[in-house]
């Protein structure tokens, strides 16, 4: 480490609100610091690797990318050895930031489709790759098109609205016991809520997010936008949560959408969704279909 100042970022819990607060707090303090320091990320001993989910990993990746781009050196403390082993020896975190890679195969975890830095040129291919992976490994005859469709919709949302400048990541985890797919996508861009508020007179990020997921609503940032993308994700998934700036909207099993205001400002957009692959229908081909 250098002789410059040492700045610590502590993650004490994987509880969603506490974790996001730590991310946001670190983001804000690094932005305001203005001095090139060594930044050490530390995880409490109580954090078990099993409790680290996709949303933890993508938000951590966005934070590290941000700190790195601010010119600081980022280190992860080995205090929680299991977790640091998982991040570096299994998921290969260092290769994304030190090594500049966009995708790295996991070393041991077979249920993770590893962190991917969302690159515009590869997004369609990547989504297809994920679907093919699950079709070939687990569900040969099922119609899994919802997987790639949701991911493509989310990736296009990043590129059409986020202005994230390369700070966007996704990761997928499969739980074989429950046959559930967990997907998390995060960017540190302007945020869906702010994007909506730029073009509409809306009083809060909570209301802006609610508008954003309504079918037919669009800020028309590109010719290809007609306001169907986020709505598609919400309709095709079992559970979904979208956090952007100071707003959050979630859908639970009952299908009800619940927008809420947050007590922090997430510096971008975070989408997490679950798909129950066992409930997917068998693929059925219709020879001729008239609309």
């Amino acid at each position: 480490m250098s002789d410059k100042g040492l700045y610590w970022i502590a993650f004490d819990s994987t509880e969603q609100h506490i974790w996001l607060w730590a991310v946001v707090n670190a983001y804000n303090r690094v932005v305001n610091r203005g001095v090139y320091d060594d930044v050490v990320i530390t995880f409490d001993d109580s954090i078990d690797v099993q409790s680290v989910k996709p949303f933890h990993l993508v938000t951590l990746a966005c934070l590290i990318h941000h700190i790195d781009k601010m010119g600081h050196h980022v280190y992860v403390s080995s205090k929680n050895k299991n977790l640091s082993d998982y991040l570096f020896n299994d998921l290969g975190f260092q290769e994304y930031f030190g090594g500049g890679k966009n995708y790295v195969e996991t070393k041991t975890s077979s249920n993770i489709f590893n962190l991917w830095r969302i690159v515009e040129s590869d997004k369609d291919m990547y989504a297809k790759k994920v679907e093919d992976y699950f079709r070939s490994r687990y569900f040969h005859d099922k119609d899994l098109s919802a997987i790639s469709l949701c991911m493509v919709e989310a990736y296009y949302n990043v590129f059409d609205h986020a202005e994230a400048n390369g700070n966007a990541f996704s990761i997928i985890q499969y739980d074989k016991a429950s046959s559930r797919l967990y997907v998390a996508i995060s960017d540190f861009g302007i945020g869906v809520a702010q994007s909506v508020r730029r073009h509409n007179n809306v009083c809060s990020d909570r209301e802006a997010i609610k508008m954003a997921v309504e079918d037919g609503f669009t800020v028309s940032s590109t010719e290809r936008n007609r306001g169907m993308g986020l709505g598609n994700i919400f309709s095709m998934t079992d559970e979904v949560m979208l956090i952007s700036n100071s707003g959050m909207i979630s859908k639970k099993h009952d299908g009800k959408l619940e927008p809420v205001g947050l007590d922090f400002m997430y510096p971008g957009t975070l989408i997490c969704f679950e798909i129950d692959l066992s409930s997917m229908e068998d693929e059925e081909i219709i020879e001729e279909f008239n609309i």
Binding site: D143, A146, E283, E284, I285, I286, E287, F289, N290, I291
Partner: peptide
């Protein structure tokens, strides 16, 4: 316009 060899899910989503 008609669609051939379309999956049931694709047809439902298109509709």
């Amino acid at each position: 316009v008609a669609f051939a060899m379309i999956t049931k899910q694709q047809a439902l989503r298109l509709k």
